[in-house]
Amino acid sequence: MIIPITVGVLTAGAIYLMLQRGMVRIIFGLSLLAHAANLVILSAGVTAWRGEPFPDAAGAADAGDPLPQAFVLTAIVIALAVTVLMLAMAVIGHNDDTKRMPETGETHRR
């Protein structure tokens, strides 16, 4: 049972980074959290079977659970999309401090 420890380490790093002020660190934290979540989902397919899920080519006897793999594949690409969007916001005003609103010339009611 090593993967749970990996998940724990990744999550701890993720939380630590997401509590920081800078957007870039938060993005990094989110990446770690995505890694952790992906590993949790993969390990939900039970890691005792680690064969590649190609029944005809590799045989189904030892093949891993394909459904979590499909979920994780989707999740990875969505994480890419989220990361890109957050990067675009980090770059506004050349400052990624989330405690200070970037200067945008707008006046907004609070």
């Binding site: 993967i3 724990g8 380490v9 939380i15 630590y16 509590l19 039970v46 890691t47 079977w49």
Partner: peptide, 23 residues
């Protein structure tokens, strides 16, 4: 907070996965 959160994520993974046959 990170240590507590990481611990709970790890414990959850340990306790709730890898304890069944193939679905």
């Amino acid at each position: 907070l990170a240590v507590v959160g990481g611990l709970s994520a790890g414990v959850a993974t340990w306790a709730l996965t890898g304890r069944r046959d193939r679905s």
